[in-house]
Amino acid sequence: MSGRSIESLVLALALAAAVIFAVFVNGFASWQNVSNLAQNSASLTILSCGMAVVIITRGLDLSQIAVMVAASTAFGILLTGGYGVPAALAVALVAAVMLGVVNGWLVAYFEIPSLLATLATAMLITGGSRWAILQGEFLVLLPKDNPFIAEISSGRILGVPLSVAVAVAILAVTGILLSQTIVGRTVYAMGDNIGAARLSGLPVRAVTLVAYVFAALTALIAGLIVASSSGAVDFRTVTNGTLLFEVIMVVVLGGVSLRGGRGSVLSIIAGVFLIAVLRNGMTLMNLSTQAQGLVLGMTLITAIVIDNYRNPRDPETETQGDL
C-alpha cells in the first residue's frame, strides 16, 4: 500500500544521503562513526516508539519530553540523595506511569483533544516537578561514577552499546505491540475511525490509557539514557522544544500519519535513519544546529507535500478543519 511505499522511499532517501555523506564527508564512513550515530539516535528512537503509538491512535503527546525530564529528575534526585538504584528506578517508574495515566485519562475520559491536554500537562509537569522536586532548580547532575549510570552510558551487550541494544529492544516491543496484539489492532482501529471503534465495542478508553502510558515509559527509558550519558538532567530540554519537534518529525517522516491509523515500526526506523544520517553528516560538516534545523524543517515540509500528493485527503469525508 502507499503507506508502506513511503517508508521505502524515506529509507532510500536516507541511504542516498548516507552514500553522499560517505563519499564527500570525511570521517562519515567509519565504523566508529556508525556506532556513534547509532548511540546518538538511541534516545530519539525510543521516544519515537512511544510517540508513534500515540499518534497512530490519532493522538499526540506534547508532554513526552516533560515526562522524560520529570521522571529522570526523580531518579537523579533519589540517586544523589543516597537511595539505591532499585528504589530510585521504582519511584521513577511509578512517576512515569502515573503521568501517562493522567494524560490518557484526560484524553480518554474527559475527551479533551490530545494536543491541548498534553500541552497543558507538559506545562504542569515541567513547572510542577521543578517546583516540587527541585525547589526551582533547572538542573540535576548525576553521579557519573555510579556503576548503574556508567553501565548505561558506556556498557555493551555483545559488543553493541547498551543504549543501542535498548533502542532495538524497544523497537521490537513496539513492533510486536502494534502488529501482534489486540491492543495494537485497537490502536489502528481507533486511529482509523474512533467512532466506529467505539461502536464495535473495542475498549477504546483503556487502549488510550495504554498508549499514553507506553509513551511515558519510553520517555522514562530515553530519559535514563540521556541523563546517564550527558551526566545531567536539564529542564531546558523541555522549554526550548526542539527535541519534542524532532521526535514528531521522525515519526511523521516515516509515514505515521497525524490523522492516525497509518504507519508501523518500519516507519520509525525509516524516520530515525533519515534524521540521524542528516544530523550526523551535517554535524561532521560543521553546520550549526540552526542550519541543521533549517534543512530538517525543509525535509519535513517536502515529506508532507509528497505524502499529501500520494495520499490526498478526501474532501467528501472531511468535516471540520483536519489538523
Binding site: A232, T283, N286, S288
Partner: peptide, 23 residues
C-alpha cells in the same frame, strides 16, 4: 574545527562533541 551552539544544553553539547571527536 567546530563552533556550534549547544543552546546551553548538556545533551546537545555531548552530541556535538562526540561527532566532532569522530571527525
Amino acid at each position: 574545527v567546530s563552533n556550534q551552539a549547544s543552546d546551553w544544553e548538556p545533551e546537545k553539547a555531548r552530541q556535538i562533541t562526540s561527532t566532532v571527536l569522530q571527525q
